[in-house]
Structures are given as C-alpha cells and as structure tokens.
Design a protein around this nucleic acid. Structure first.
Lengths: 153, 153
DNA sequence: GGTGAAATTTTAGGTGC
DNA sequence: GCACCTAAAATTTCACC
C-alpha cells in the first residue's frame, strides 16, 4: 500500500488516541472529514492498522511484574516447534514472544502478579513443555517506557 | 479501586476491541448501556484504563525488525540515570524499556526498518550517552505473539 | 441498575473543482 | 483526490425513576 505524508500523520495520531473522532482527526491533518474517513478505512483494510485496543495500567491491574524469559529449544521436529508456539499463544500470561536470531531461541515477556504466580506459571505450564533445553528468567523492576507508537518516517 | 467480575469482563472486552460500542459492550456483559458506560468512565478515571490506541502492523509499516538491547550502566550519580531515562523516553525507536533486577541493567526493545537503521541508532544516539558500561544486542526474527491483554482473574 | 429522550458523531451520497 | 453540503443512522450521554 502507498502511504503519503497525510497517512503518516493519521497513523501517528491514531496510535496516540485510538478514539479520536473523525472530525478532530481530519482537522489535525488538514482534511475534511469525508476523505479523512476514507483514508482511515483504507488503512484498516490494508492491515496497516491491525486493531484498536484499550491499554491497561499493569500496576493498577495488580500485575506489576514483567518477567523476560529466554528459552532454548532442543533440536527437534517441526511439529514440536509448532506445539511450542501454539502453547505460547494460548497462555494469557505471555504477552510477547519473539523468535530470536541464532538458533532455537525464544524471548518471552510474561506478566504476573508476583513471584509466586511466576513460579506457578513455570511449574504448571512452561517446564511441562517438551523439547526445552534451558530456561533463563530476568525480572523487570520498573517499566521505564511502554509505547505502541512506531517510528514512522 | 474495587473491581468486580463485570468490570473484569468489561476490561477484557475493551482490551480486545477498544472501539466496541457501549451498546454492544453492555449486551455482552449483561448490563444496560447506562450503568455500563458509568463503569467504563470510572475505570478510565481510576487510571486502570490508561489509554485507547490503534495498534499498527509492524511489518506492514516497514519496520519489521525488533532489537532487544541489554544495557549496563556504570556506577554514577542519580542525575545521569535520569538523563538516561529521559533520552530513552524521547527516542521514538525505543518502544519498550525496563529497569531489570540486579544492578544498573536496562532492557530495551528497539524497532527499526533494517540493520542499517539500527546501526545508525546505535552510532548517533545510544553510544553517545554517557555512563554506559556495555551494550548487547539481540535480534528478533519473528514476532510469535504480541498482545496487550493482561491476564486478569 | 434501568428507561427514554436529547445531543453528538459517524457515515454515505451527491456536486463541483 | 478533495472540499463542501445534506441527511440518515448509530452512538453517546444525561436527567430521572
């Protein structure tokens, strides 16, 4: 999809406030509401805008702990890798998961209420998966920055 | 703030779709629109709902690369730590930053278009900061999961 | 917490530049 | 492709029970 400067401005504003009205949005990007709405719909249809969500305050929700987990998998069949991915996607404690360069390395961000909850997650879920060679956990004390705004142009 | 089962349901739905109408939301949680809207406003005022945003597709936006950067700081004055945090918050390439347990360790997620852009970020920004003892970069090949939905009750 | 009505916003259509 | 206008539909919001 072709993106121009006005689209970038629209995307920037929607990333800051996903509920801004088309009237306000169009005024801020220098268009009238009709073409502005058309652009937003086109950006949604193209998949560039993936979804609109409410972002909660992790601490206020009683889930102040983020744990970063490095997982190394044993050499194995494709099927086991798919099972790993599927489990990750299913577990609500895992908010982010990345396949890292190098070998069979995954990085997870796990969100829990406290260390006890994390231990429970480890014992009842993660360590029960087959094919894991090693697990290493690092704990975040403080969220210095948490943004969804991509650095467009 | 006191949260009950209906509030948790509201939060779950809003985290999935930040633009769901009050009419739909109220029907799905088993309330009429008025009290449902009152609850949503209370959740916003309490800070539990931090904000509403549009989530973009990183790949479609031409920024497919996430780099995780571990930074160790030298022992130093509080002032320098604040300068570090301030810079991190200002740089749009850094989407997430966590202060980790242990010592002066930070973990960053940096989003860029390609490795060249990452080198530019390193050379013109990160390595110019004072008080950094070491920098270690790991590259994500694939985003297996990226969610904003907290595991509430 | 529910009801109903008013106010605001969204959204689609049509014309001309 | 955009501005402008109009109008219908949907949604938000509020006073009141």
């Amino acid at each position: 999809m072709q993106i121009d400067a006005i689209d970038r401005k629209i995307l920037a504003l929607l990333q800051e406030d996903g509920r801004i009205s088309i009237a306000d949005l169009s005024a801020r990007v220098g268009l009238s509401p009709s073409p502005c709405l058309r652009r937003v719909r086109a950006l949604e249809a193209s998949g560039l805008i993936a979804r609109y969500v409410a972002v909660l305050n992790q601490r206020a929700a009683g889930l102040p702990v983020s744990v970063f987990v490095s997982i190394k998998l044993e050499r194995q069949r494709e099927e086991a890798l798919d099972a790993f991915s599927a489990a990750i996607r299913r577990w609500p404690e895992v908010l982010e998961c990345y396949l890292m360069t190098g070998q069979r390395d995954y990085l997870l961000r796990v969100v829990v209420a406290d260390l006890e909850s994390y231990e429970r997650f480890l014992k009842t879920k993660l360590t029960r998966l087959e094919g894991i060679a090693s697990i290493e956990s690092s704990f975040a004390l403080e969220q210095v920055k948490y943004s969804n705004v991509l650095p467009l142009g």
